[in-house]
């Protein structure tokens, strides 16, 4: 079995000014080469966990290590190894796609020639070659999602954090994105990913974890979970686990 690349132990997080914790004694471990799915209703704490893992948020108690380095002490060593694709579009709207990518690539320290090569490949792959010199604010929702993803892949990270990468995109874009994720995973990138699409997770993930209200409910391969709970698929397991009440 491959090595553990991400270790999260008993992590607690309560936002300042909030009474209910966003994460409660949360523990998971992810192995190298996995596509790990974090599933749960709105407000479950998925984004909170990914933000903590990307070093954007501090946590209160617990231990986290990524690629053998401890958070938050060795954050500066961790940052070049991880790629982050936030839930919202995190790009400069008044800059063009090429300008955005040049800037982010430059901050990773990728040399210009190499950067240009990678940019061309990715823009081509995601069908943005034609519109690469347009300001991001003129892009459609699906195009924004694709360029948001490219910005996280430029430096070829060892670990990739994706927060709902397929939300509000059409079937074509979604297929393209998922195909690409499988491809880079095959090339050795470990992926942690959140989604509200159970079918997509069932097809893509090597393992999934269900969470609600900051707590881990269960984790295993999709096949094992379905078998052990006698549910026809992940979606019915999800409803069984989390109920039908609406969340904030």
């Amino acid at each position: 079995m491959s090595e553990i690349i991400i270790q999260v132990n008993n992590v607690n997080k309560t936002y300042r000014g909030s009474y209910t914790p966003a994460l409660r004694n949360f523990s998971i471990e992810v192995r190298e080469g996995e596509i790990f799915g974090l599933l749960g209703p709105n407000g479950a704490g998925k984004s909170t966990l990914l933000n903590i893992l990307s070093g954007l948020l501090t946590f209160d108690t617990g231990n986290i290590s990524i690629c053998g380095r401890n958070m938050p002490q060795q954050l500066n060593e961790i940052k070049p190894l991880i790629g982050v694709v936030p839930q919202e579009i995190a790009l400069y709207p008044t800059l063009t796609a090429v300008e955005n990518l040049k800037i982010f690539g430059g901050i990773y320290g990728i040399i210009s020639k190499e950067l240009k090569q990678r940019m061309d490949n990715l823009l081509n792959y995601f069908g943005l070659e034609q519109s690469k010199n347009r300001q991001i604010k003129t892009y459609s929702g699906g195009m924004k999602r694709r360029i948001n993803l490219i910005a996280g892949l430029l430096h070829q990270p060892k670990v990739l954090f994706l927060d709902e990468p397929t939300v509000s995109v059409d079937v074509q874009s979604k297929t393209l994105i998922l195909d690409n994720l499988k491809e880079i995973n095959a090339q050795g990138t470990t992926i942690i990913y959140t989604s509200h699409f159970m079918e997509e997770a069932e097809m893509l993930c090597s393992r999934v974890a269900f969470m609600d209200e900051g707590k881990l409910l269960c984790k295993d391969t999709p096949q094992n979970l379905i078998q052990n709970t006698n549910c026809p698929n992940l979606e019915s397991l999800y409803l069984k686990l989390t109920g039908k009440t609406l969340r904030d």
């Binding site: 954007l56 940052k79 936030p86 995190a90 790009l91 901050i107």
Partner: peptide, 16 residues
Amino acid sequence: NERKDGSFKRLLALPC
């Protein structure tokens, strides 16, 4: 603006 459009968030996740 940078905080609002999320680009600052990405910068923080970058080695900078």
